[in-house]
Simulated scan of single mutants.
Amino acid sequence: MGVLTDYFRAADDAAVLAALGDAEGGPLVGGGRAVFDGTEAKGVDPDVVLGQLIAVVRRVEWAVDLVGGTPVWPTTPPPGREGPADEDDPWVTGPWVMRLDRAVRDTLAELPAAEAAEAGARWAAATAEELPGLDGEDLRPLVEDLSGLARRAREAGEDLYCWLCP
């Protein structure tokens, strides 16, 4: 099974941290209801797969640091930990939440709806190894969802976040 990833928008890190306790199963299904406005994107990790989409939209070459982010959860590494991590250590077991750079949000927000199909096709070609068997038509709805989410986040003055769970 691949990594589960949800992309969502929130006012700030404090709002995300406050909701984490009630969001068993992720920010989109906490308590059986969506805690945040977002979209599921199984296997679309921020650094590689989302990074490929950002590269496609910006028309630049992909690089591992193209999608910048700040860890939000877990909040801090265990103090003075020596030796191997404990099996319950959230830094090892997840889930993890990161706030994406605003440049990523703005790149997705500025993608014209008319270009979603082309971006999906180019993204499918760029991620053939990471998302095998998917073509541009398969990815077009996700491109549209991520772009719409980014637009709503920007209009509300919010940030985009990614929740990852192994």
Rank of each mutant, 00 (worst) to 15 (best):
M1K: 14
G2V: 12
G2R: 11
V3S: 06
L4R: 12
T5N: 14
Y7S: 02
R9T: 07
A10L: 06
A11H: 08
D13A: 12
A14F: 03
A15G: 08
A19S: 15
G21A: 13
G26P: 03
P27Y: 06
V29K: 07
V29G: 10
G32C: 05
G32I: 04
R33V: 10
G38V: 09
T39H: 01
T39S: 09
E40W: 12
E40D: 10
P46W: 15
D47N: 13
V48E: 12
V49L: 03
V49D: 06
Q52T: 00
L53G: 03
V56E: 01
R59L: 00
V60H: 01
V60Q: 08
V64M: 14
V67M: 05
T70S: 05
P71H: 11
W73F: 14
P74N: 11
T76P: 00
P77V: 11
P77I: 05
P78W: 09
P79A: 11
R81S: 09
R81G: 05
P84E: 12
P84A: 13
A85T: 07
D86M: 02
T93R: 14
G94A: 09
D101I: 00
D101E: 15
R102V: 07
R102A: 15
V104S: 06
L108Y: 05
L108T: 06
E110R: 13
P112E: 06
A117T: 08
A124C: 03
A124M: 02
A126H: 01
E129M: 11
P132F: 14
G133R: 12
D135F: 07
L139K: 11
L142Y: 07
V143W: 04
D145C: 08
D145I: 02
S147R: 02
S147A: 13
G148Y: 03
R151P: 04
R152N: 12
R152E: 15
R154L: 15
E158N: 09
D159E: 04
D159V: 01
L160K: 00
W163C: 03
P166K: 13
